[in-house]
Design a protein around this nucleic acid. Structure first.
Length: 986
DNA sequence: ACAGAAGCTTA
DNA sequence: GTAAGCTTCTGTT
């Protein structure tokens, strides 16, 4: 190699992963072999090796090599055993492509370089240095930040997937430091993917700023005491060693004893027949054609060649990591603490044990017996199933779980079920597992499974038996699935809901995996180990029955053990009535609502979608006219660059990632100053939002059989006790703008029916008036007065009559502010007034309503003392961070806890109404059915003739929902209306 | 494929 | 200033 020569080094391993995820899936037609990354690789290499005019790099390579990782074990593992330890196995359909890409490289007549003990990056670094020594230039084909330290006068990078050159300026722009400081920057930031530790709390922005200030890592570490920010200083001093080891890990080795020299990399003309042989084997027809043309080869004369296809267990490529999940020791501490230390040590529970003692004993019991997933029974015979069911009947208690093909219970097909009668004693009953590898003729039902009708016939009496308690995790799902098979499961307990009642607001969710870790110290088998994930995901019916047995029976076993630990805790904490009145009975109510669904008129949506598309297209044209370029308007990044960079509009704030903010608020302000463009962008966003989120998405949720839309309500998703709705979310259907409201006209009643919408008026303010005992507000609600006007009148001494709209608007904002845990900052933002003015309003408000200030102070003090707040029905919401030393974290938790009492109480009230509603309607012999809940609103469908009789019943149940548990000092008021669609009923 | 940011919809 | 979920874009594995 000599001066003027140009070496191309392709980061083969890096490319494989990126291509795999970036490119659409592609399989070889003849046999389904996954080849998308192989095709991407071949296209790229072909382009790069052709004449410079055909490439995007703009230079002609004289030397060319493709570099791979040999395996994930390298000298870095000796430096730091955890290095890359949390890498997971590559996706199954990528594995055969590792070998194929190496074979592709050889077919291109290119050197295929890898070396045991070194990463591809080290080899690249070494060849860069060799080329530089010889006076040549190098282009690294990669976009990996780990390679950016090599960039310099003779070394550049090129990202083939984004067609982007990466030189010194690009590195500085992206990372804030020149390439030679990348090593120090990475040493500070670390890399969670490769398990490079770095310094906790230091990200790229901070690292760049520190390196600017102190020159380099050594300078920073020696003078760390000079850093002003306390946390940052302490973290850097405490983690200096981690930074040093990180620097070693990220520093690429440029003196690897390589075997091939640069002269071996001299680029030759491609060998047409050899390359075409490989491409034909891969069935890449269009690339075959192009290569044939360029090399003057006749493809028909070339035979496809044999390739080696590696199986998952023999493939090179990144090894599976050894990351072992940390044991959940916290749970041990939690329980024994509450049980009073060691009093619970290893004895049998006795009659008369206190609930907390019992819970601790059960906890010990549950964790002492280790979970052995290989010890479960697979039931494939009706007689055996009957014996298990008899055992469950005898026990009076059984944990139960279903296995299906979908997370949507309305679409799910039942594949099997599992049950547990005692810890460790669990079984799985396969019903509809299929065999075959998914080819067209395969997919036959596996033999020796109990016929589904027969099994369910045996199971039904158990699930419906009043004397047998069924324990289920996330009960609602199974309730819907079993209800579709004509089984009404009762009575029941739901471990997810018990956890939610006990621990809403504490870290960690209430799903089975999290609860098992937390309470049993046991990691459950992840579904993806059985069924894969992403593109390789298969339905549960394709899962091997032995594996399914371990997985499914484990669920029943874990559920039962969780119940034994958690259920006594309810009593220990005085939360039984919350669970029994607000949570458990709502499950079948919601299950029925979800199963009913609501009718949606697809024609209306389709017409609206067309109108929105037209409107958006017109605005798009006008926007392109104004900016003189066709950018992606949906990209805030591009938009910000054009608006505030090139066009020089007065840009406001930047977001936390340093981008220009293009929020609607900011664009509205610009529009108000007379700029034409921002208005159009805001309008365009509204139209495209309505189209993509609603008119285009909703029809996809119409169920093929019922022709209705079935949302899914989550009972344990919010901290405050509200429900949430998803797939689709029917709790955020537009209502504020006229364009948005049109979407509601598509939600319709079936023929002969009406929709009835009933909503609580100002429920959270009424709750506030009640709990804070504010006489003026209580009186105003009793009088049925305009609450915001009364507030304004009290504050500003103006009569309600003839009050200017602006005055009332401000009082309204303050009222809402109180519910949200008011701050001067927030109120100022909302009203677009200076913070001082907002502060003065709040002061004035508290002077007139001192009871509210007392209420807020009392709530904060309570939350700080106990770590939680309670609704008036006793629901607990935890705020573990309320004592944080960070003032903004603390303030946030204070606001949230103030809001939680109000929002949570309102949520409890509507829950109580929902639990009673079906009974009340039945007693009144009405056909009305509850369909939707939107926090303070219930939507029903009812026979047209019964509308007049239905509304008073609904109103009565809702308005008296707090009774008799709580007699509120403020009346609840419900507005209700009937119409053919949701827009008119609301 | 997935995660995070930005933005927008609701109560 | 509270509580959610969904879509698009962007960057990364």
């Amino acid at each position: 190699m000599k001066k003027g020569d140009h070496l191309f080094l392709v980061d083969g391993s890096g490319y494989i992963f990126r291509a795999y995820h970036a490119l659409p899936p592609l399989t070889r037609k003849s046999d389904g072999l996954p080849v998308s990354a192989v095709l991407g690789f071949c296209n790229m290499v072909w382009k790069l090796t052709q004449d410079a005019r055909n490439t995007d790099v703009g230079v002609v390579p004289t030397h060319f090599a493709v570099i791979f990782d040999y395996s994930s074990k390298t000298f870095r593992n000796d430096l730091y055993p955890e290095y890359k330890a949390n890498r997971s196995a590559p996706p199954e359909d990528l594995i055969p492509q590792f070998g194929l890409i190496r074979q592709a490289t050889k077919a291109f007549n290119l050197p295929c370089i890898e070396m045991e003990g070194f990463e591809a990056d080290d080899l690249i670094a070494t060849y860069c240095r060799l080329a530089c020594d010889a006076g040549g230039d190098t282009t690294i084909i990669s976009s990996d930040k780990d390679l950016m330290q090599l960039v310099g006068a003779t070394v550049g990078m090129y990202d083939p997937m984004k067609d982007r050159q990466i030189g010194v300026p690009e590195v500085v722009e992206k990372w804030g430091v020149p390439p030679e400081k990348m090593i120090d920057l990475q040493a500070l930031t670390g890399d969670s993917v490769d398990n490079v530790p770095g310094v906790p709390g230091i990200g790229p922005k901070t690292a760049a700023q520190l390196l600017e200030q102190f020159g380099d890592l050594d300078g920073l570490l020696t003078r760390a005491g000079e850093i002003k920010q306390e946390k940052r200083r302490e973290s850097i001093i405490a983690n200096a060693d981690k930074a040093r080891i990180s620097r070693e890990l990220v520093t690429l080795k440029n003196d690897v004893p390589v075997i091939e020299g640069l002269d071996d990399f001299t680029l030759h003309e491609p060998d047409g027949p050899k390359l075409i042989g490989f491409l034909k084997t891969m069935e890449f027809s269009s690339l075959t054609r192009r290569v044939a043309e360029a090399t003057g080869t006749e493809p028909a004369d070339v035979q496809a060649v044999a390739v080696t296809i590696e199986r998952a267990d023999t493939a090179h490529g990144p090894d599976v990591g050894f990351g072992v999940p940390a044991a959940a020791e916290s749970a041990v501490g939690a329980v024994t603490d509450e049980a009073g230390g060691s009093t619970a040590a290893g004895r049998e529970p006795r009659e008369g044990d206190t609930p907390s003692l019992l819970s601790a004993l059960r906890f010990e019991d549950a964790t002492a017996r280790k979970i052995d997933t290989s010890a479960y029974v697979c039931i494939r015979d009706t007689a055996v199933l009957k014996a298990w069911i008899a055992e469950a009947m005898e026990a009076g208690i059984v944990a139960f779980d279903t296995e299906t093909t979908s997370t949507d219970p309305m679409q799910a097909e039942l594949i099997g079920f599992s049950m547990a009668t005692a810890p460790g004693r669990a079984a799985y009953v396969p019903l509809a597992h299929k065999s075959g590898n998914g080819d067209l003729l395969g997919g036959g039902v596996v033999e020796n499974q109990i016929p589904i009708r027969e099994a369910l016939g045996v199971l039904k009496p158990l699930l419906e038996d009043k004397s047998v308690l069924k324990i289920v995790q996330e009960l609602k799902y199974d309730l819907v699935v079993m209800s579709r098979h004509g089984i009404d499961v009762a009575p029941f307990d739901d471990t997810m809901l018990i956890s939610y009642v006990l621990d809403a607001g504490t870290s960690g969710g209430h799903g089975m995996a999290a609860l098992s870790e937390k309470w049993l110290g046991h990691s459950t088998i992840p579904l993806k180990e059985l069924a894969g994930s992403g593109r390789s995901f298969v339905g549960f019916d394709q899962v091997d029955i032995d594996k399914a047995t371990a997985y499914a029976a484990e669920h029943a076993d874990v559920t039962l053990r969780l119940w034994r630990v958690l259920k006594p805790r309810l009593a220990a904490k005085g939360l039984v009535s919350v669970y029994e009145r607000l949570e458990r009975p709502l499950v079948p109510v919601l299950a029925r609502m979800e199963q009913r669904g609501i009718s949606v008129d697809r024609q209306i949506l389709s017409r609206l979608s067309g109108e929105l598309a037209q409107g958006a297209a017109r605005l798009e044209d006008e926007i392109y006219q104004l900016i003189g370029e066709r950018i992606n308007i949906g990209s805030p990044k591009q938009l910000g660059d054009i608006l505030f960079g090139r066009m020089g509009l007065p840009g406001g704030s930047k977001t936390k990632t340093g981008q220009w903010s293009t929020s609607a608020q900011l664009l509205e302000d610009l529009a108000a100053e007379g700029h034409e463009l921002p208005r159009k962008i805001v309008d365009w966003r509204q139209l495209t939002k309505l189209k993509s989120t609603y008119t285009d998405a909703l029809p996809g949720f119409v169920h093929p059989n019922t022709k209705r839309v079935h949302t899914s309500y989550a009972l344990a998703a919010t901290t405050t006790g509200r429900l949430s709705s998803s797939d689709p979310n029917l709790q955020n259907i537009p209502v504020r703008t006229i364009e948005g409201r049109k979407i509601r006209t598509a939600f319709i009643a079936d023929k002969g029916n009406k929709l009835v919408s009933a909503d609580y008026s100002q429920i959270e303010l009424r709750v506030l008036a009640h709990v804070a005992e504010i006489p003026q507000l209580t009186q105003a609600f009793a009088d049925g007065a305009d609450i915001h006007a009364i507030t304004a009148s009290e504050m500003f001494n103006v009569p309600v009559e003839g009050m200017p709209a602006e005055i009332r608007r401000r009082a309204k904002a303050i009222n809402f502010g109180i519910i949200y845990g008011i701050s001067a900052f927030g109120l100022a933002n909302q009203l677009s007034i200076p913070r001082e003015e907002a502060g003065a309003y709040i002061k004035k408000y508290f002077e007139r309503f001192p009871g509210i200030r007392d209420y807020i102070d009392a709530t904060k003090a309570y939350a700080r003392e106990y770590g939680y707040v309670e609704t008036i029905f006793g629901r607990r919401i935890h705020y573990p961070e309320i004592r944080s030393s960070n003032p903004s974290v603390r303030a946030f938790n204070e606001r949230a806890s103030i809001n939680a009492r109000l929002q949570g109480t309102a949520a409890d009230i509507i829950r109580r109404a929902m639990v009673r509603m079906d009974d009340a309607l039945e007693k009144a012999k009405l056909s009305a059915r509850m369909l939707l809940q939107v926090h303070d609103e219930l939507v029903f469908e009812t026979a047209e003739a019964e509308v007049e009789a239905t509304i008073p019943v609904v109103r009565h149940v809702m308005e008296n929902a707090a009774m008799p548990a709580v007699s509120m000092s403020v009346p609840l008021h419900v507005d209700a209306r009937a119409a053919n669609n949701w827009e008119e009923a609301h």
